[in-house]
Each structure stands twice: as structure tokens, then as C-alpha cells.
Design a protein around this nucleic acid. Sequence first.
DNA 1: AGGTTACGTCAACACCGTTGACACAAGGAT
DNA 2: ATCCTTGTGTCAACGGTGTTGACGTAACCT
Lengths: 234, 234
Amino acid sequence: MTESERVPAERKRRRPTSSGVVLSADLIVDAACELIDAQGAQAFTVRKLGAALGADPSAVYRYFRNTEDLLLALADRLIGESMAGFGPSGDWAADLRELGMRAYRSALRHPQIAVFSTVRVTGRPHEQRAVDTGVGLLLQAGFDEATAVRHYHALVDTALGHAALDAGVLRLAPAQRAADEQAWQAQYGSLPADEYPSLHRVREHLPLMAGSAVERALDLLVAAMRREAAERGE
Amino acid sequence: MTESERVPAERKRRRPTSSGVVLSADLIVDAACELIDAQGAQAFTVRKLGAALGADPSAVYRYFRNTEDLLLALADRLIGESMAGFGPSGDWAADLRELGMRAYRSALRHPQIAVFSTVRVTGRPHEQRAVDTGVGLLLQAGFDEATAVRHYHALVDTALGHAALDAGVLRLAPAQRAADEQAWQAQYGSLPADEYPSLHRVREHLPLMAGSAVERALDLLVAAMRREAAERGE
DNA sequence: AGGTTACGTCAACACCGTTGACACAAGGAT
DNA sequence: ATCCTTGTGTCAACGGTGTTGACGTAACCT
């Protein structure tokens, strides 16, 4: 399932492209990353990737079976980046939260990829390292094997799920985003108290729903785990 | 922001299409729903929608500004469907969990739409009703206004985030899904104990990560809220 | 020096969303 | 009953997309 199955990991014939660049899987992933960073995920296309590389778009298919395969490679790089410099602090719960936030941030940075990184098993080093770290924290907290796996799964998927969601916001043009927020205020700010009693009561606090809920969701998850571990230890 | 701004809500000139169908915004949303259900979200295109309707694809643009607009209309219908028949049981925490699962299921049914339903403010009746219900449960539990809004936000976004994530799995062809799962077993099942100690220890339980983590995530969230409410009440 | 072949290039295919021009029938007005 | 306006379905077209197969050439191995 890795691209090395499809293509020999080491290349012998390195032939420069017409513009002089010598291609490689790594270089292509680099370019894809930059492209997404600079132009937004929406702007990522094989053809633009080719242009950015100074090569024919179809050259990409010598290195990756298709675009999904390429995004898969990108995913593992992301995981690696997000884990760089991470060191356990000793508070396993805080570390888990940090792990989740790291996953969230890196996934959000390249929204297109967020979905793939959990759906597909990259099975590559970075992914394995991250899973090992997270599960290790939960084992250290005293959970049994099955529960550790389950809780890790819940935490990471929640972080990545929020990333997938929040990515949608970033895709909107700023102008539209602003217009949407105003529409929100108008729609929800003045609802009849008799039909929507709860909404009416909390109307002043509705702007709280504007941002992302990751942090709060992770806080709640970690709190529940902490409590569970404490009870387990009694 | 609703489509009625763009197009008069009531149409006078109802002209049948060449195949005899009389179009309407509702009918188009119907067809889009069926199309996604039958062929998968990936298969949804304006052109196929036109074919399914027995009309020229471009006729859709008389009713919706663009595809995003159409998906927005679909989103509110989904929210409505998901809330149909919901009645509070008296246990606010269980009800909240149920609310989250309903959001998850309906979003997952039409993955393409999942993202839009939270990103954009539909501001339509169904959405408002759902928010009012959820916030109401939290107020009833004794949370203050701001906390109720925050917790509702976390819960719903988590449910929808997982839906967005899990939607990716459904998009894979069954054969590929199976191949992926096997690759998973192979990659993770036999890792060196010295390099990946935690992974090695839990290796028998890794298949737990195959399915969705929604239920476990929601369980944890609700447990944390329940605990918080209990402490608040003391 | 020669043969193999990996790999960059090119052209083409079948799609996609969206738009502008156009024709025509539905409905209101007379 | 007739005319006019106009809403709306149709058509053709544009510029984009991912992907593929044929092709030639340059890079490596012997």
C-alpha cells in the first residue's frame, strides 16, 4: 500500500526535467506542501503541481499511482512534522491533550489531507511512532490494553474530525465568511422567546459558537479519562 | 443567504421540462438526495443530477446559485430528518448523546454535506430547532448560559467531525477497504517490541481502531459533562 | 560502445461546474 | 381572443480537472 510497492524505492535513472529539475518522490511532496500552503487546499491540482515543479503534470504518475496516493504520502509527512519536538511532560493527561492539539493543528494546516490521514493506514514510520506514543501515555496512566487503544482512537479521531470540520471554514473566502457571521447574528440574535426559549435565553453567548470547539472537546475528553483513571486507581 | 433571496419563493411560470417533469427547488433536493444515496457522494455531479431529473443540468442554476447553495439546502433537510421523532427522555445526558448520534448518522448518510452543515449558517427552521433543543437540555442540567453554549458546540462539532472523518471510509471501494485493513494488520501486527513497546503490548487490541470512535468519544464527552454538573450541584 | 529501459513529454479522453444566448410557452393585461 | 412580457428550459461553449498510452531519449549497466 505504500508507494514503494508501486515504484522502486531507489531510482537509478535520474533524468532531469526539461526545466532542469531532477524529480523525486520527496521533491514532489515538498512542492505539493508549498502549493497547498501558498494557494490553499482548493488550489491543489496535479496540473498546477506539475507547473510548480517545472515538469509535465503526468510525470507525477511515475512516482505515485494517483493523487490519493500522493496525499497519503503527504499525510505521513504531516504526522511527522506535528510530532517534532514533542516530549512527555510527566502529566499524561496534559500530554494527551497536547498530542491531540498537534494532530489538529497539522491536519488543519492542510485540510485536504486531514481526511486521508485517518481513513487510510499509511503504516509508515511517523504514524507508528505517534500511535506508540499516545497509547504509551494511556498505558502509563493505568488503563488496560483494550481501553488504552479505544481512548487513543477516540482522542485522535476527535482532534482530526474537528480539523476536517474547521477546514471548511478556511475554504470560504474571507468576505463570505464575514457575511455568514453577520447573517448568523441576525438570524439567531432575535428569535421569539416563546418558540425558542433556550436559544433566547442564551442569545448573548451565541458568538461563542463562532470559533472552533476542539480545545473544549479535548478538555472534556481528557477530563473524563483522568476521572476514569483516578477511579480505577482507587 | 437562503435560496429564496436569489429566486422568488413562489414560481408562477411552471414550464415542464422536455421529459415532462415540472421542476421545483424541493424536487431538485429530492433528486440530489436520492442520487447521493444510490451512487455515493462521490458520484454527485450537477450533470448527473440533471440526467436524474430528466432535465438539462443547467436548469438547476435557475433554482440555486451554484452547487454549494444546493448542498446548503440539502443540509437543512438533513438536520430536519435527523431530528424527526426525537423526544427528551428525562435523562439530559442520555438525550444529549442521542442528539449527537442523530447528527452523526444523518451527516454520515450524505458525507459531502457534512462539512457544510456546520460551516455555513443555514439559519433555517430545522437548524434553529435543533440548537434550541440541545442548549435547552444543558440549561436544564444546571449549566449557566455560556457553558451550555460551549458544551453544545463541543458535542455537536465532535459528532459532525467524526462523521466527516468516517465519511472518507465509505468513499473507498469495498475491495480497497478490505485491502487496507489487511495492510493494517500486517504493518502493525508485528512491530519490534524494542522500538515500539506500547504498540507491541496492545497489538492484539489494535483491530479496535478499525471502526468509528464516535460512540466512545460521545460517551466520554457526556461523562465529563455529567460529572461537571454533579459537582456544580453540590 | 551498445542495449535496455526508466522516465519525462505530449496528446488525447472523458469528465467536471458554470455561463450566455436563445427560443418558447405561460400568464397577465387589454 | 390577442398581444406582450418574462420566466425558464435548452443548447453550445469555455476553461478547468484527473488520468492514460504512445513515444523518444538519455542514463545506466555490461
